[in-house]
């Protein structure tokens, strides 16, 4: 089912996100509507859609934070909630401000690391990698949004996972940070990891992603490579606007 580059199939199977007819209903609204797609390793997969299209909900469903109304989301062939050390298989950044402001960056990461038997050395390593080593002992409450994004990315990288998901990671980052994220995403994918990235910055997405999944009103609109889309439309942005024109509807999901 997964055809991709030259690595042995068992390795590839272990780095894949599969959505099978995933559906999530909140009261009367269908946030995710019968969504099926696979995210494969080796390249960055861009996850696009208007506000309220169900991107964040889909990510929450993959992580078992919300439970699906029907269908299922599998990571490496298993439900996320059945993983005993999930951080070693999947790293995720959903909401960078979802941290206790009173805790230091180092302690925040160490709290997470301990749950998955990840060493304190690794905590220092990822802090270095995201450029927060200098403020590791500072309270997270005083961090700018950009710094919190970096902290969230550090948390996602902690377990050195084969699969990574990032929801709008460039929000609040300076041009330097945006470039850094782009390079990081691409290098993670190049190492053979599965990377799912959502963003509203089309120009950035065109530079970072190789494959694109577009959703609208919880449904799959298009699954294609960036090359295919830019062949049919003047740019990725034009492709996105044309394809989602009929599904811009606010407030469909949380």
């Amino acid at each position: 089912m997964v055809r991709c580059d030259d690595r042995p199939p068992y390795l590839i199977l272990y780095r894949v996100i599969e959505l099978k007819r995933l559906t999530k209903r909140y009261g009367d609204t269908l946030a995710v509507d019968d969504l099926s797609f696979n995210v494969e390793p080796g390249h960055v997969t861009g996850f696009l859609g208007p506000n309220g299209a169900g991107k964040s909900t889909t990510m929450r469903l993959i992580l078992g934070l919300d439970s699906p109304t029907s269908g299922e989301a599998l990571v490496n062939g298993r439900r996320y909630t059945s993983l005993s050390r999930p951080m070693r298989e999947v790293g995720a950044l959903l909401d960078a401000s979802a941290v206790h402001g009173g805790r230091s960056a180092y302690n925040h990461l160490l709290c997470l690391a301990r749950t998955n038997d990840i060493s304190a050395t690794r905590v220092s390593e990822v802090l270095q990698q995201v450029g927060l080593a200098g403020v590791a002992r500072k309270r997270v409450g005083g961090f700018s949004l950009g710094m919190k994004q970096r902290l969230g990315i550090a948390a996602a990288l902690l377990g050195d996972p084969g699969t990574l998901m990032f929801d709008e990671p460039v929000n609040g980052l300076d041009p330097d940070g945006v470039r850094w994220i782009r390079d990081l995403m691409r290098s993670l994918a190049k190492q053979g990891r599965t990377v799912l990235l959502s963003s509203h910055l089309m120009s950035e997405m065109a530079l970072t992603a190789e494959r694109i999944i577009i959703v609208g009103r919880g449904k799959l609109i298009t699954e294609a490579t960036v090359a295919e889309l830019t062949e049919r439309y003047p740019s990725l942005e034009d492709a996105y606007l044309a394809l989602t024109a009929s599904s811009v509807e606010y407030g469909a999901a949380r």
Partner: peptide, 18 residues
């Protein structure tokens, strides 16, 4: 409740889904 108010609970549940 400190975790629930800040949203930290979602980060925690990502690390410990059980």
């Amino acid at each position: 409740t400190a975790e629930q108010a800040s949203g930290m609970i979602r980060t925690t549940l990502t690390a410990v889904p059980k």
